[in-house]
């Protein structure tokens, strides 16, 4: 078994299985959340549910990146807040607007879109990696976070970190051969795909649920925050 075969495996059958596990796992999680059901809410409506949802999302979009100082998660520790933001920004730009990754979407979905110049993607990737290291250190030193961080959280961090660094090293052709790095990158990505539904990384879907449900409840009671 050499790196050639490992790469072929990780780009081929393993990727296929990982993707199917991801789809099945997310469907499972989604159904479980939906099946929790809503408790009948007999309070008389004072406001609009739809309006509440809209406000909730709009605030997420506007306050979060543009006027974060109104939130106390920001004022309490701006560096960590920004690190979280930088990490997600870098992640999304890399995954959707990096040329290599767009071609993955294109091969899966059949449609492609514009991509950003490499240096921009690359700097954001570097930023995301630095941000992840900052978040890691924060978890190590912050006494409260340290208590909250169990093995699952450390694994979350590691499993997201590995594709990031292997991708970055590969783009810069450092240390190992490109094919070896490609194989490592793909293995890391496949593991991530399988891990997501079983872990809190599934927040990329449930985050929107949480926003929608809270927004809707607040809207109904006309207490939109």
């Amino acid at each position: 078994m050499n790196w050639e075969n490992i790469l072929e495996f990780a780009r081929g059958p393993f990727f296929q299985v990982a993707l199917l596990v991801f789809v099945a796992g997310m469907a499972y999680r989604l159904v479980r959340v939906l099946a929790l059901g809503w408790k009948p809410d007999r309070v008389k409506a004072k406001g609009s549910r739809v309006g509440g949802v809209a406000v909730s999302f709009l605030k997420g979009i506007i306050i979060w990146p543009f006027v974060p100082w109104v939130k106390n998660t920001f004022s309490r520790n701006p560096v960590i807040y920004l690190a979280g933001g930088l990490f997600h920004l870098g992640l999304f730009v890399v995954i959707f607007l990096g040329t290599a990754h767009m071609l993955v979407w294109k091969s899966l979905l059949g449609i492609g879109w514009f991509t950003l110049p490499l240096p921009i993607v690359d700097w954001l990737a570097a930023g995301a990696i630095v941000a992840m290291i900052a978040l890691f250190i924060n978890r190590l030193v912050n006494p409260v976070l340290k208590l909250l961080t169990g093995p699952a959280e450390w694994l979350n961090w590691l499993i997201v970190f590995l594709p990031m660094v292997t991708g970055y090293i590969m783009t810069h052709h450092l240390w190992l051969e490109y094919d070896t790095l490609f194989a490592l990158h793909m293995l890391a990505v496949d593991v991530l795909l399988i891990w997501i539904p079983m872990s809190r990384i599934s927040h990329f879907m449930f985050y929107f649920f949480a926003k929608a449900i809270h927004g809707s409840d607040f809207g109904k009671r006309a207490v939109t925050p």
Binding site: F15, A24, A27, A100, V104, S107
Partner: peptide, 24 residues
């Protein structure tokens, strides 16, 4: 003529549907 990063094997629509259905 496919990007060098494109996966070698892609699940069919049916397989994806079946996986989603199984999960659900």
């Amino acid at each position: 003529y496919q990007g060098q990063s494109a996966p070698l094997d892609r699940p069919t629509i049916t397989a994806v549907g079946a996986a989603a259905a199984a999960g659900a």
